[in-house]
Design a protein around this nucleic acid. Structure first.
Lengths: 185, 185
DNA sequence: CGTTCCCTTGATGGGCTTCAAGACTCGTGG
DNA sequence: CCACGAGTCTTGAAGCCCATCAAGGGAACG
């Protein structure tokens, strides 16, 4: 990649994969996120747009020059990168130690928090969550198979922790109950 | 934490844990690494020194001031953080998708590469690896149990991929064979 | 109406965890 | 000097969770 970019709109997924096809999603690129890395031209990531996207691209040399001239830019990038690092490490805990059910619940908590933040609220009861991805994409995020994702969603539904409205829509009667299932730290 | 620090010598482990005691190591702090984060006083990490350590500490306000005055410092920190992010994401692939045997092999490859780099070589055959940690610590890094770690080491030994010299020392007859076991990307 | 994609559900097996017991090492104190 | 104990590691047995394989349902689209 001879450029870096800032995401203006749209969603992309960062993944890493093995030769035999096993895949693990390692990050999400949302509006405002940064793509590419100053100081290195190649990246071992697979980047896939999940929606139509608009990027604001910078040629690498110019951008790196900019970086030395505007200290505020470097600080901003540092903040963002540290945030991503925290997110990645949270995910490591999930991938290394949580059960399938806990992983699903954790993801739903994450999505619920995001939807609530969108409308400027703290998550409370009866939240509606839109799943912006297929079962397979969920599985690739959580380190599971798509069948397990499907089964655990069914199990959470059977236990009245969630209600499924069609395949892509989830409502949460009690947010506290969902959090309890997620094995929060 | 009202200070940040740079590691002068020694090793520490960064972990994250759940209420019920499940633990996942999320990073290593080696000489030169940075501890703490500018812009935020609390961190959801457990930091445990694995050896005696010497830290070079900075009070937070002074350090943040320094950061705005010395652009090179911010750039350096950004580089380091981006490296850590890459490492964390590699580990996500391991935790999410690799088998126990592959995880052990991957760790050994990592340690072998580090030992070789120490003496300025590329890893070749008959490398001696020192395991600087207990089986339990290995397990916490790899998202396994200590019993599984022990068993997989025994299995790799039985398959002539490694030789065990006591409990903390491993020699690798063929580095290529070890890499083949590690499911590299 | 057929095809394709996505999802669900069932059956089976395996990989890893869990529980348990014993071996080894090393430092300490009798 | 040796027994003891704590910490570490190995090994065995049992079982569960999740992956794998397989089949079919449902919705969207041409």
């Amino acid at each position: 990649m001879d450029f870096v970019a800032s995401v203006v709109s749209g969603v992309a997924e960062l993944g890493r994969e093995l030769e035999d096809g096993r895949r693990q999603m390692v990050g999400l690129l949302l509006t405002g996120d940064f793509l590419g890395r100053p100081g290195r031209a190649i990246a071992p990531y697979t980047v896939v747009a999940a929606t139509d996207m608009t990027l604001c691209c910078f040629r690498r040399p110019q951008f790196e020059q900019l970086l030395t001239k505007m200290p505020a830019l470097a600080n901003r990038l540092l903040e963002m990168t540290l945030d991503e690092l925290d997110v990645a490490r949270d995910w490591m805990l999930l991938l290394g130690r949580k059960s399938a059910r806990e992983r699903i619940a954790s993801l739903l908590v994450l999505l619920a928090r995001r939807e609530s933040a969108m409308i400027g609220q703290i998550p409370t009861d009866r939240i509606a969550i839109e799943l912006p991805m297929t079962r397979e994409a969920i599985a690739d995020h959580l380190g599971l198979t798509l069948e397990t994702v499907s089964r655990q969603l069914a199990a959470l539904k059977a236990d009245k922790v969630i209600v499924l409205d069609g395949k892509r829509r989830v409502t949460v009667p009690s947010f506290a109950a969902l959090v309890a299932e997620s094995a929060a730290a």
